[in-house]
Amino acid sequence: MKPAPFRYHRAASLEDAIATLASAGPDDDVRVIAGGQSLGPMLNLRLVRPTVLVDIHRIEALRAIEPLPDGGVRIGACVTHAQLEDLPPGGAFSAANPAVFPAGLADVLRHVAGGIAYRAIRCRGTIGGSLAHADPAADWPSALAALGATIELTGPAGRRNVAARDFCHGLFETAIEPGEVLAAILLPGSGIRRWGRGKHCRKAGEFAHALAVCIDRGGDGVEVWLGATGAAPVAIALDRAFVDGVAGSRASAALRRTRMRERIAASLPAAIAPGDAYARHLHAQVAAEAVIDAMANP
């Protein structure tokens, strides 16, 4: 249970990290490491055998949570889950920075971050590392897609942005090109009216078997994003009249959830857990819980 040997470079800056990636030889397998809470186990199990590790977690510029001029929020790639879990109540950025998050956003981030694995993992694991690793069962890919986030990538050719909904291409596959580093996550400034979350794990803290996030910003439709599908997150669009009808009905909570689940099950893409009736039921059920939860929020 020890990693194969590698060379280690602690990057002093983003430019240094990019230059190190660019200087790799043809036989090198270079990996970027931040908190190492996904890569660490894979190194120990020798599922990956990089020849060079570029450690970006000490780069101060990647560790900040900052307000943007347009009212949005920029989260550096090396911000830990624990930093987000510990965001002050009331939506302020920090005790030192009284600027406030767009309505509802800090609550969603706090909730999603606080539900990841265990505190010892959250104290090292980073939002950017989790996203770049793109395990479909991880919490951030679907949550950031639902939040309408933009992913900022920096490489030798400069900076480019990719929408979070287009970022994950499949199992461990993302829009990151060789030589690029995921630098930040940008969140929009528009307020969140209501939000809800569903997550199913057999044991507290383990990877989810089904995940869903519903963010309601007003608008004609309601979108629910499903994670843990084995590939990229998937969005299911629901008609607002239907959602309001179910949420506002006088039926029992169980019956409302069943109606929502049946509606979502009818739209569940065939590629999700084909032939596995239990898994498909679970995805639809957890997505229904996210929507019902959102509608129950004030």
Partner: peptide, 14 residues
């Protein structure tokens, strides 16, 4: 802060 020593590289603790 609590961390897992088995998946924290010693080199990262400088």
């Amino acid at each position: 802060q609590p961390v897992r020593a088995c998946i924290t590289l010693a080199a990262a603790c400088e």
